[in-house]
Design a protein around this nucleic acid. Structure first.
Lengths: 227, 227
DNA sequence: ATATAAAATTAAGTTACCCTAATTTTAGTC
DNA sequence: GACTAAAATTAGGGTAACTTAATTTTATAT
């Protein structure tokens, strides 16, 4: 015998592909490479292995997409990830902006029985602390009606529902400026395009730079505005 | 750059060496190979890598021993392992005999902040569900005064404190026969050596085969007898 | 003291997963 | 439609972690 494709590696890639698919599909090799912090050839190689297992389809020079099986597996990882995040915040009282990295490690080390007991302990939460929906035990992920921040105009208010792009550096940046799910924002000004998108929050002095500078796109999604 | 010795692999080996050291020191390569379910050459190679990192010392043809640094790291793994076991049993209500495997995976994916928050949540438990002591945050592991089951004679009673050799198949075997930490046993008969060591528990009909058939040695340890 | 079984080690080879450098394909511009 | 920059891919190479087979060392029995 010989070493096999590790379950952890498979899950890491599937999860990234799943998250990137919500932005554009099929997912570009370069996007995956950036997300995984590896070279493009490494991604190509890995994608071929995943395709051999029928977890993804690879259209050369076009990109990668999850198969039905792959998507189910990815949703399962997301479920574990987001349940752990809830646990870390609600039960262990760890700070909102730090739990993502911890969950990224725990999610691959979690047996099904642990996942479901955890869900029961937390009373089957619907969203992670960053506002993203938690897939159910069958791998169903409810499709959010998302309104990106950029869709708001000056004077409009909205409630922040989720931060779709979870990355510690970004979450830290947001938490320092008062951006949490549940917060109501009013757009007071929008900076021109050459810089990052600027948004002013009610009662705050400093403008907040959001989105473009970090993820290359707007990532904060909201409920439909209320003013 | 190139792949590095993974933290998980290091910890798995250190933990095994630490556990085996309590039985015999230095630890034989073959014992490690059996425990890790890999070949002897694989262990040799790994031990050389660990020795290069000054986590173990290897005396050729004799065996392996932990350095001070290695032991500290091993105790840290044991701490995480046993805290997770307590969590899985006490908070998630998973069965006593199944949590070992779950903890074996979680222990390598646990950040220090998670470990300590977990300890606080559990109110800093002293023993894991199998009765083994939990090292403190500094890596200090209290040395149990162990009395092996084989030291008892016919008619003697004792309280089972810990099952030193944690393996799901053994724990399942024991739980089916009523062996848990805290149980008081009376040795009613001891079978001859050619078979496994036999022990009768108070009020039970069936003899229980313990020790030799599974681990090759007696592994159930007790408090000092009380009659 | 020598023969021998068992354990330890070395030798040679495999796959997973990563890299850099070179090449090919695509997409967009003039 | 040819030119070009960027993305994708192939080529070639490396280490970690494993394997089996062959060899060496140790322990043991006669």
């Amino acid at each position: 015998m010989s070493p096999a494709l590790t379950s952890e590696t498979i899950e890491m890639y599937l999860k990234s592909i799943c998250e990137l698919e919500t932005i554009e599909s099929p997912v570009a090799i370069s996007q995956l490479a950036q997300r995984q912090s590896v070279s493009s050839p490494a991604v190509i190689e890995m994608v071929k292995r995943l395709a051999a297992k029928e977890l993804v389809t690879h259209t050369p020079y076009k990109g990668v997409a999850l198969t039905v099986t792959g998507k189910k597996r990815a949703h399962n990882v997301l479920r574990r990830h987001r349940l752990w995040e809830r646990f870390l915040v609600d039960v262990l009282n760890l700070p909102w902006e730090n739990v993502h990295d911890c969950a990224c490690r725990l999610e691959h080390a979690t047996a099904p029985a642990v996942t479901e007991s955890l869900a029961a302990l937390l009373q089957h939460p619907v969203r992670c602390p960053h506002g993203n929906p938690i897939p159910d035990a069958d791998g169903n992920l409810p499709d959010d009606e998302k309104l990106p921040l950029a869709a708001l105009e000056i004077g409009q208010s909205a409630t922040l529902v989720s931060v779709g792009y979870e990355e510690t550096i970004l979450l830290d940046y947001l938490s320092r400026r008062g951006f949490f799910p549940g917060v109501t924002l009013t757009v007071e000004d929008i900076a021109p395009y050459q810089g990052p998108l600027m948004v002013l929050i009610e009662g705050r002095e400093q403008p907040c730079a959001l989105g473009r500078e970090i993820a290359g796109r707007v990532f904060v999604t909201m409920d439909s505005g209320e003013g």
